[in-house]
Amino acid sequence: MIEKEVTIVNNAGLHTRPAATLVKIAAKYQSEFFIYKDGLAINGKSIIGVMTLAAEKGSMLNLSFEGPDEEQQAEEIVNYFNRGFDEL
């Protein structure tokens, strides 16, 4: 299992478009992807769950990846967060 911590860097936060892209990236891989924030455990492959976070700029999220292709999944997802969902 891989665990990472990321911060939301774009102004609009984790809104619908990035949430949908995030879920799409996560679903490409077999590994389970979970997001933890404020005591919520969110399955990163579920769009409703990711939108529940309503994560604003500056908020920190804990990510966990577990499965056969966890490394590639973690890399691509963390990269997407760090790019500010291509909105920077």
Binding site: L40, S46, I47, I48, T52, A54
Partner: peptide, 27 residues
């Protein structure tokens, strides 16, 4: 659906509900 929040009530009861934002939306 999706995110279920369980709250312990008393000693042996768990009450489940959704989150404020999602309510009864479902994917």
């Amino acid at each position: 659906d999706d995110v279920v929040i369980l709250t312990k009530k008393g000693e042996n009861v768990l009450i489940g509900s959704g989150t404020k934002l999602v309510k009864h939306f479902m994917e």
